[in-house]
Design a protein around this nucleic acid. Sequence first.
DNA 1: GATCCGTGGCA
DNA 2: TTGCCAAGGAT
Length: 341
Amino acid sequence: MHFSDILIRWYSKYKRELPWRNTTSPYHIWLSEIILQQTKVAQGLDYYNKFIDQYPTIEDLANETEDNVLKLWQGLGYYSRARNLHTTAKVISTELNGTFPVTYDEIIKLKGIGAYTAAAISSFCFGEKKAVVDGNVYRVLSRYFGINTPIDSTIGKKEFQELAQECLSIENPGEYNQAIMEFGALQCTPNPNCEVCPLREPCNAYENSMVKALPVKEKKIKVKDRYFNFIVIGDNESFYIQKREAKDIWQNLYQFPLNESKKEVVSPFELKDSILNQAVFLRVSEQFKHLLSHQRIYAKFWEFNLAEMSPLKGFKKIKKRNIQEFAVPRLIQKYLESVKN
DNA sequence: GATCCGTGGCA
DNA sequence: TTGCCAAGGAT
C-alpha cells in the first residue's frame, strides 16, 4: 500500500473528534488554524469554542474592538495572531464583500496567513492540491525518508516543501494533509512508540536507529534576561494601568506602569518615575520568574499608595475590580491572583 | 534571512 | 531546573 494510503487509513481509524473537523466552513477552519499555530490542541480547544460562541461569523468578529478580541485571546500567547485575525476579518468584511477567498494564492495574501495556513485552508475547504508543511510533517517525512537536512534552514524548508508536495494524495489532498499531521501528533511523536507504527517496516529512521535524532535543527535560540518593575499605584479603589504599544512582547495588552532595569531592583528608592511623586511605598511582591521562548523576565510588583489620583497622560485610571475587563499578560494575571487572597 | 513573538506540558 | 517542543508568521 502507498505511503499516503497508509496514512489516510490510519487517520480514519485513530483521528480525534474535534469541533473543526467535519466542516468545510473557511471561517471555522481559518480560526482553528490560527489558534493551533505553535499551540497544542489541548491548549487551544477552549479558545476555539469561546471564539465561535462569541463570534459566530466573520462579520461578528470584524465588528468587535481589538481590545475585546485580545481579551478573549488572553493567556494563549503570540498575540499578533489575534491582532492579525481581527485585521483580516475586517478586510474580508469591508473589502472582500464578506466572502473568504477560495484559492491558495488569494488566501496567502491575508495577514497572519503563511504557506502552511494557506495550504491547510485551501485543501481542507476547497480541495486544492497544496501540501501542508508543519512541525508534524517535518518529523514524519524526515524520519520516513531518512533526511537530515536541518528543517530550520532555507534549503531544508525548500526540500521538505517539495517532498511533501510529491507525497500529497491527488485524490484527496485535504484528507491526506490532515492525516499526516494527526499521524505526527499522535503516532510519530518526538518520543514515539515505533512498535505499533504502520509505517515501521519501510521507515528509514527506524531501520537505521535514527528516529530520536530526526528531524535535525541547527539553530538554538538565545534567551535574554529582563528585569521588570511594575508600579502598582493608586488609592483604595483605583490604580493606573497602561497599554503596551511598543514593538515588543505583549503588544496592545495592558499592564501596570513599568520601570525596566538592567539588573534586579531591591529598594523602592531605586525606582525613578515621576508617577511616584508624593506616593507612599507600601510593599513589594515576591519576585516572579516568567519564561518566554526568547526571554527570562524577573518581575517585581511595587505597591504604592497615592492620596490624589489626578489624570495622567499615557495612563488609564481604573477601578481595581475592573482590571478583569482588560487583556493582560499571564505574568500580570498571576500577580493579580496572588494578591486576591 | 536570522530573529522575534507566549504559554504550558513534559522528560 | 533546564531544555525542548507545539497545526507558523512577520519583519
